[in-house]
Computed example of a mutant assay.
Amino acid sequence: MVFGALIAKRSTPQGPDPFEPTPILRLLLRAPVKLLLYHAYHLVTFLRSAPTPSDTPVRVVCISDTHNHTLEEIPAGDILIHAGDLTNDGSVAEIQKQVDWLCSLPHKEIVVISGNHDTYLDPRTRPSLSEPQRSGEIDWKRVHYLQHRRLSLTVAVESSDPDSRTHLLATRHRRIRLYGAPQIPACGPMSVHAFQYPRGRDAWSETVPEDTDILITHTPPKYHGDLPLPDGMGCEHLLKEVKRIKPALHVFGHVHWGAGQSVVWWDGCHEAYVNGMETGSKYTHGLLSPRLWFNVIRVGYRGLRELIWDKVWGGQGPSTIMVNAAQMHNSTGRLGNPVQVVDI
């Protein structure tokens, strides 16, 4: 089974592949108001200042969706996170090869979760592998594998003392709490793709510890790094859980076209964006939807208020850096997306 064949399974006779971006002309015809809402929200967010890192910043290097490939160069950092889909077929041998590669990297801590292609790691999909593919066990070595599990790391960070004339490096310790979970809304056969649940089912509420600093999932949250137009491939229940926890960093992958990072400010502008994106309008495509237009206006009004508060008064409310760390370049079967690096 090759990567291209697995991707092909996502296509259906009923419509285009939801893991491919919808052409702009089709969006203009199908969801013109949501297209306006999307760009208004992201323009305001882009203009805002970046969140201020901690006084003892920890550098987190984020990758995902390597699908049996290895990267020749990965930026240095304190914590390396892989957010799933290490492999194509998910056999023991493929997973072990990826683990061995990750362990060869110089990062102080390495944290990994599973993806839907990592079949062996889900006991429900393991029988779909042939006997040779599922024989043996995985030696995780120094990799922290999180499967609905919490991890607390104490990271030693070197920083210069601004009060010292010699600017000598001082070592400080920072405690980082991580939580990793691999489940995704169904995108393929339940017997083959790992850790799936029926789309629309709530598999997230009250599952993430409240003191989580870094949340690692394979699926994106709804409307963030998930091809949000016209419908979005992420999970709406995960988005609500991220809002409840408000971690400093949320790392995911799965939707290759959504690779990149952005900041979600948990304020009225974001609330209006989500409310608007959730608004259905089947026959008029949103053009006659008062609720949708109200949220477009609210994004502009609340976004402008928050932007002034940020730029004039230096105010910053609660936020989460969202990182889609997919390395696979779109549906090419080749790596090509940049490695994402975040200081928190």
Rank of each mutant, 00 (worst) to 15 (best):
V2K: 13
G4Q: 14
E20T: 14
I24E: 10
R30C: 10
A40H: 08
Y41K: 05
Y41T: 08
V60C: 02
S64M: 04
H67Q: 06
E73A: 15
L80C: 05
L80F: 03
V92E: 07
Q96G: 03
Q98R: 01
C103L: 10
I110Y: 04
T119C: 11
L121Q: 00
P123G: 09
P127S: 00
P127E: 04
S135M: 13
T154S: 14
T166P: 00
H167G: 03
L169R: 02
R174N: 04
P182N: 14
P182S: 11
C187F: 15
M190Y: 14
Y197L: 06
Y197C: 07
D202Q: 02
L215S: 10
P221S: 07
K222M: 08
G225I: 02
K240I: 06
R244G: 07
H250Y: 03
H250D: 03
F252L: 08
G253E: 00
H254P: 01
W257I: 11
G258A: 00
Q261L: 13
V263E: 00
W265N: 13
D267A: 08
D267E: 05
E271C: 11
G276Y: 10
G276E: 11
E278Q: 14
L288C: 12
R291Q: 15
F294H: 14
R298I: 14
R302A: 13
E306K: 12
L335H: 00
I344R: 06
